[in-house]
Amino acid sequence: MDDLIPKRMFFTKGVGFHRNQLQSFEIALRDAGIEICNLVTVSSIFPPDCKIISREEGLKHLKPGQITFVVMAREATNEPNRLVAAAIGLAQPKDKKQYGYISEHHGFGTTNKKAADFAEDLAATMLASTLGIELDIDSAWDERKKMYVADKNRQFVSRSIAQTAEGHKDGLWTTVVACAVMLLD
């Protein structure tokens, strides 16, 4: 069963427009580069010692029909000009031997930066709670160090990816996706 622990992970995002909602989602997956896979959504634990690689490197390892595990945020609208957002956040202890936490956020009316920041804050808060730590994200964030500092022994680094789009002006379905793609090899 150790083979089911991801060794590498990458982030990707995409947007799609189409008159059919499902096809809009498919186009968003194409934009993200992961449409050739059979995606299985999983929850939120980032494995210890898992290496984060670039999207470009990660896409090279995907094969048509491959079962691929992802943490996915997805949102859609067919309302013209309605802002949709999808974001993935990751918080992990500075000690890479410990596990981290991945969060997904999706919604309406939020900017790319706000969606990304919210996903990171959510991941950090959830990681802290699994470790039995109360984390006030406003006071724990160290802007200079670009990390959350729960106490001197517990520091979390974070990152995120977000995709936003305005609903198509002609009422086509607009779908956004953001994913953390896990690779087992």
Rank of each mutant, 00 (worst) to 15 (best):
M1L: 14
D2N: 12
L4I: 12
I5R: 06
I5T: 11
M9L: 08
M9V: 09
M9N: 01
F10C: 02
G14L: 02
V15N: 02
F17E: 13
F17L: 09
Q23Y: 13
S24E: 09
F25P: 06
F25M: 10
E26H: 13
A28C: 09
A28T: 12
L29K: 14
A32M: 03
A32V: 03
I36G: 09
C37T: 15
C37M: 10
L39C: 12
L39A: 12
F46M: 06
P47I: 03
P47V: 00
P47E: 03
P47Q: 06
P48E: 01
D49R: 15
I52Q: 05
I53N: 07
I53H: 03
R55F: 00
E56W: 06
E57C: 01
G58W: 00
H61D: 08
H61W: 13
G65Y: 07
G65W: 06
Q66P: 15
F69Y: 14
V71L: 06
M72C: 11
E75H: 06
A76D: 12
A76C: 09
T77R: 10
E79D: 14
P80S: 14
N81I: 15
R82T: 15
L83H: 14
A86W: 12
A86G: 14
A86M: 13
I88G: 00
A91S: 13
Q92D: 10
Q92H: 15
D95Q: 06
K96H: 07
Q98K: 11
Y99G: 04
Y99D: 04
G100L: 01
I102S: 00
H105K: 07
H106I: 01
F108M: 11
T110Y: 06
N112K: 15
N112C: 12
K114Q: 13
A116V: 09
A116P: 08
D117H: 15
E120A: 11
A124N: 07
M126H: 13
L127V: 07
A128L: 05
S129T: 10
T130D: 08
L131E: 10
G132Y: 08
I133V: 04
I137N: 03
D138K: 09
D138N: 10
S139W: 04
S139G: 00
A140C: 04
D142R: 07
D142V: 03
E143P: 11
R144D: 15
K145F: 07
K146N: 14
Y148R: 12
V149Y: 02
V149S: 02
N153S: 11
R154W: 13
Q155M: 13
V157L: 05
R159W: 05
R159K: 10
S160N: 09
T164M: 00
A165N: 06
E166P: 00
D170A: 07
L172C: 09
L172W: 12
T175P: 14
V177M: 00
A178F: 00
A180E: 03
A180F: 02
L183G: 10
